[in-house]
């Protein structure tokens, strides 16, 4: 989304999925490696920052958890606005939750197009014997919509690290593609910013008259 001259990329990632699929647990599991237990008690697992280093690039992930209950679905847009990535979580033992993921994918594609990197996570693989969402169906769906699919278990710490790493890699890739095409535009924007304050800056106020 924004990149400081020092080379740090800041990305916003939003966690979507039905309630009880384990969004918060995945987030906690991912951050837990970085923080000890003592820190965890003071953490609020709704918004977390994670600093990464991929190929010498410093990356700062701001991860936004969202409320998954159906009645809060309408609030989605204010959360995923300006997101660089979305993690869509479902519970492999709950077919409904996979249906919700499909809804989210549709909505995100419609609202944000290809600006957002999508990753689908089938959580709770420790409950493999209770699986109701067929493996092939999930993976072929992900492929169809151009999202990476991961199987995770927040409980056993499986696949969580890989999921975030892959997501971050893709976001960096997409950011670099976009910034190449936008080089001209951004430099023009900078010139404008340069000039504005030296003029009588009051014009910004009187313009509204």
């Amino acid at each position: 989304m924004s990149s400081a001259p020092s080379g740090t990329h800041n990305f916003k990632v939003v966690l979507l999925g039905e309630g009880c699929v384990g969004k918060t647990s995945i987030l906690l599991r991912y951050i837990e490696d970085k923080f000890n237990d003592k820190h965890l008690t003071t953490l609020q697992a709704t918004f977390l920052n994670k600093k990464l280093n991929i190929n010498g690039k410093r990356i700062n992930l701001s991860i936004w958890d969202t409320a998954g209950q159906e009645k809060f679905h309408a609030l989605g847009p204010i959360y995923y606005r300006n997101s660089n990535g979305a993690i869509l979580v479902y519970d492999i033992t709950d077919e409904d939750s996979f249906g919700k993921v499909k809804n989210w994918v549709k909505e995100l594609k419609k609202m944000l197009g290809s600006d957002i990197v999508l990753v689908i996570a089938g959580n709770k693989v420790d409950l493999e014997h209770e699986r109701t969402v067929p493996l092939e169906e999930a993976e072929s769906y992900a492929k169809m919509v151009g999202a990476k699919h991961f199987y995770t278990s927040a409980k056993l710490n499986q696949g969580v690290e890989e999921l975030f790493l892959e997501l971050t890699r893709e976001m960096v890739e997409r950011f670099e593609q976009n910034s190449q095409t936008e080089v001209n535009r951004t430099s023009r924007v900078l010139v404008v910013e340069d000039e504005a304050p030296t003029q009588s800056s009051c014009c910004s106020g009187s313009r509204s008259n």
Binding site: G19, Q44, A45, T66
Partner: peptide, 14 residues
């Protein structure tokens, strides 16, 4: 409101 469980956005919003 923090109990045993860590609270996520599911709890925060309501």
């Amino acid at each position: 409101i923090r109990g045993e469980r860590t609270l996520g956005a599911d709890d925060l919003l309501p």
